[in-house]
């Protein structure tokens, strides 16, 4: 059996596939951040908490109301998205005329509050959430054992990412949104309710995070820190892809998942750092990000 840099190719394929799976979470979360930043100019630091809320609401639906995974996939983004809309109306909307920093601080504070409340209530070890029976088990691919559920995660997040990209870049609604970002006054003059559109966009971005949270619930532990652990990496992904670039966030999300997967094979100790090293290099060479346009 030939080896590649001392690693058998089977192991390498396996790790690349796993990287793709982790990349799906990065992609879907950074997509939500990019949508919110691109259209609202808000750096949504509460994104991790909203992702975590997604997983928690799914757990609550199951344990308090007996509603299973598939319905949760639909209901949770709506519930958490609505919560996001309330936050936007009550607080975030007051900050649009101020510097980015204010939005960042507000959403960061909100994230700490949400995490603290859930930590107080449920502790840190996490809550069990089972894989839905339809997706239990796995496939032996020859080079690795692929759990069915992980395969589903890649498919579902790819579908959501592509659909979002399509809506924003290729439809009339998306055109309105992009126009409203460029010049809200002019778009308002055409009779389009810009503030409502912005509110709904924030709600949509939050719903994306919640969707990722439901996807994550069966594989990662449902605990109040699950978002905080991930959000910093996701921000790095957004910065590498270019702040506000939809396509950039999707491609970099999956791409960095792969890079991280490879790092875990060759030098696992560096796996938590590698993305930040890439971020530093990208910022030095191309400060607007790989897909961003210079301001």
């Amino acid at each position: 059996m030939f080896e590649l840099l001392g690693i058998p190719p089977q192991a390498l394929f396996g790790q690349l596939l796993l990287g793709l799976i982790n990349g799906s979470f990065y992609a879907i979360l950074s997509l939500g951040l990019a949508v919110i930043f691109g259209l609202l100019n808000i750096i949504n630091f509460a994104h991790g908490a909203q992702y975590m809320l997604g997983a928690f609401v799914a757990w609550m639906l199951l344990n308090y109301l007996g509603i299973g995974y598939w319905w949760a996939l639909l209901i949770v983004p709506i519930v958490v998205g609505a919560f996001g809309i309330v936050l936007e109306r009550l607080m975030i909307a007051r900050l649009y005329h101020l510097d980015h920093l204010y939005g960042l601080l507000l959403t960061f504070g909100l994230a700490l509050i949400i995490q603290g409340l859930l930590r107080n209530q449920y502790g840190i070890s996490g809550l069990p959430y089972s894989i839905p029976p339809q997706l239990a088990g796995g496939q032996n691919l020859g080079f690795m054992f692929l759990p069915n559920y992980r395969g589903w995660v890649v498919v579902a997040s790819l579908a959501v990412c592509v659909a979002t990209w399509f809506v924003i870049e290729k439809t009339r609604l998306g055109a309105y949104l992009r126009a409203a970002t460029e010049n809200p006054t002019l778009v308002g003059a055409f009779g389009i309710n810009v503030p409502r559109m912005i509110t709904l966009t924030y709600g949509f971005g939050v719903a994306l995070a919640a969707f990722a949270g439901v996807l994550a619930a069966p594989v990662y532990s449902v605990n109040p820190n699950m978002g905080a652990d991930l959000i910093i990496v996701v921000f790095a992904v957004v910065v590498i892809g270019g702040m506000g670039s939809i396509l950039g966030s999707i491609v970099t999300g999956f791409g960095l998942g792969l890079v991280e997967g490879l790092t875990k094979v060759f030098y696992p100790e560096a796996s938590s750092v590698v993305i930040f090293v890439i971020m530093a290099i990208v910022l030095l060479v191309k400060p607007a990000g790989l897909f961003g346009r210079a301001a």
Binding site: I124, S125, G126, M144, Y220, D229, E269, S271
Partner: peptide, 30 residues
Amino acid sequence: HPLGSPDFSSFLLQAQASGAQIVGLANAGT
């Protein structure tokens, strides 16, 4: 693995590839 890893799949895959009978967890907590 780094302290506080959310994802162990990659490490578990390496354990699987090793063919060892026991996968020992020299870690704690979450």
